[in-house]
């Protein structure tokens, strides 16, 4: 898996406020990074910049390999069944493998409309979407929110497996995220 993520001297501004500045990072295949910091410090903004969705106020981003983003926004149609909603993304991504549903314990919920799903079930559904995309670089924004203990372990294991395959994983979370060999980045160190 070809993966590389390089950011140079990033600064981020939200409205009139400078959130962080001078942030540089370089991630090689198989590396994981845990971004920590208090609420509102700019973790989600950083991930969106790394994903290339928003432009940084200053600095540059370069990536090699496709990017997958998991954030609080599900991108699944609320009114249709979970299976159908995921089928759209899996169709786009050409995902065939059904094992993701089993691993995230969603196989029994495929007929349930997305709007009836609980917070944790939604998070797991988004994880299935991410797995189907087969992206080289994973950007996970608070991936453990709302998950029970078993699902937490599953997500942590999936992230570890992704890195073993040579992928890159960036986790932004104020919670503990168990993963061997991960680097930590405290966003507070770069606060402006």
């Amino acid at each position: 898996m070809q993966a590389r993520l390089i950011a140079k001297d990033l600064a981020c501004r939200r409205g009139e406020r400078l959130l962080f500045r001078g942030l540089s990072l370089a991630l090689e295949p198989g590396e994981a990074l845990h971004v920590t910091g208090a609420n509102g410090i700019g973790k989600s903004s950083l991930l969106r910049i790394l994903a290339g969705l928003t432009r940084p106020f200053a600095g540059e981003i370069a990536h090699e390999g496709s990017v997958g983003l998991l954030d609080e926004r599900l991108a699944l149609d609320e009114a249709v069944s979970l299976g159908k909603a995921l089928d759209f993304w899996r169709g786009l991504d050409g995902a065939k493998d059904m094992s993701a549903f089993e691993r995230l314990a969603l196989a029994d919920l495929l007929d349930v409309p997305v709007r009836y799903l609980s917070t944790g079930q939604r998070k797991r559904a988004a994880m299935v979407r991410l797995l189907g995309a087969n992206a080289a670089i994973w950007l996970l924004d608070e991936p453990l929110n709302g998950l029970d203990d078993e699902a937490r372990l599953t997500v942590e294991r999936l992230a570890a497996e992704h890195c073993e395959r040579g992928g890159i994983c960036v986790v932004a979370s104020h919670q503990h995220f168990a993963m061997a060999g991960k680097r930590a980045l405290a966003l507070a160190d770069y606060a402006a």
């Binding site: 994903a51 969705l53 990017v67 997958g68 983003l69 995309a133």
Partner: peptide
């Protein structure tokens, strides 16, 4: 956002 990440 998700479409953008897939190059669409």
């Amino acid at each position: 956002d998700q479409l953008h990440l897939r190059g669409i």
